[in-house]
Design a protein around this nucleic acid. Structure first.
Lengths: 210, 210
DNA sequence: ATAGAAAGTGAGTACTTGCTATCTAACCTC
DNA sequence: GAGGTTAGATAGCAAGTACTCACTTTCTAT
């Protein structure tokens, strides 16, 4: 009874624990407060650690944000892969279904985090450079996922184009979807737009057997 | 020779002059520095006026930003209208041409300003509420422009969906286009994507005369 | 010309920011 | 255990923030 119940962690465990808490806290702050309001103090408060702890593991605020970016990038591509894995994409309905799931994935907090960092990087050359590797990795892996989905039916030219179309449309949607209720009035419009996209994708490669 | 050459402006002219300079300066700061770095000091330096002048005309920083938003919103819809006015949209090539012009318009500084404010509004309830009227006005006017372009050939259901598709795709493109050279390596991909979009739009209403 | 109002100035306010220096608590090696 | 190293807490700093206020300059009405 001399030691408190949850203790005797190894140094590496302690370290990993607070680093993880800081990354998660950064994600939370970014999604619900935005980039500018994600101060080191706010992140520390959310993570339940002191500022000194933060600056022990990350030399600068930007380092924390870059680490967070890499953290969510891998999670995002994993979510995409999960969403599309084994999905049928032969009919318009099936493709529309995939698109609906992709839309939900794009609207997720981790993806919102990624977007927030991308926007911030536009006006910050250092951050932009630091984010470049993660960006290229994510792009390549997204292309892999797309190839798994549509690779056998879309040409090498069309595949990245369709990917760009889908991803950019969903991202644009996420940016302009700042209304409290994401499934608000124009929801029907968005659904219809996604259906048109699905038609485009399916009709791009009409089924061999009519 | 007692008075300097360019003087004797009326008070209204002076007022309008500095307000205009402040709005333009805000646009410049937002596009090249981003929302967070658009401080009142930065705007005043860019506009060449003192902070006191700013706070005479705008009670708060947010008021300045909202005024800027309304300022650019009207300019943006005018640019869109100009871009599409009288354009032919019968063939895939013609629609692709329109989309290319729309893309350029979406990448313009004033549109970038609008986007910057939209993103900031996501994490700021007050700003979001203040931006709502301008947002709805812009949306309605964009729908008008789209109706002028495609109204006779797309159904009332499809029109807003196609508009959403095009605008969101272009916006998403603008967000992720933070590379120095916007017409960089994946430029071909984007062009191909826009062409696919054009095909979708044209094939949505096959010409009556085959 | 002169009084009064509006426009513009710039130093100053209270506060927040990222970050550091100093120190204590927890862990590892012996 | 002791000695040394790492992790974390706390107070504080310089720089920057939005905004204010006493003041001068510029226009307007008489």
């Amino acid at each position: 009874m001399t030691a408190s119940p949850v203790q005797r962690r190894t140094q590496a465990q302690r370290r990993e624990g607070t680093i993880g808490a800081l990354l998660e806290a950064t994600v939370a702050c970014l999604t619900e407060r935005g980039y500018a309001a994600t101060s080191t103090a706010a992140v520390c408060a959310e993570a339940g650690v002191s500022q000194g702890a933060l600056f022990r593991h990350f030399p600068t605020r930007q380092a924390l944000l870059v680490a967070t970016a890499e953290h969510v990038a891998t999670r995002n591509v994993a979510a995409f892969r999960l969403t599309t894995e084994g999905a049928a994409v032969d009919t318009v309905d099936e493709v529309a279904d995939v698109l609906a799931h992709l839309r939900a994935a794009v609207l997720s907090p981790t993806n919102q985090t990624w977007r927030e960092l991308l926007v911030a990087a536009r006006a910050d050359a250092d951050l932009r450079a630091a984010l470049l590797p993660a960006r290229e990795l994510l792009q390549a892996q997204m292309l892999d996922v797309a190839a798994d989905l549509w690779g056998e039916r879309l040409s090498a030219d069309d595949l990245p184009a369709v990917l760009s179309l889908v991803v950019n449309m969903l991202d644009g949607l996420a940016f302009s979807a700042l209304d409290p209720d994401p499934a608000a009035a124009p929801g029907r419009t968005v659904e219809r737009a996604l259906r048109l996209l699905a038609e485009l994708i399916v009709h791009r490669y009409p089924e061999e057997s009519p």
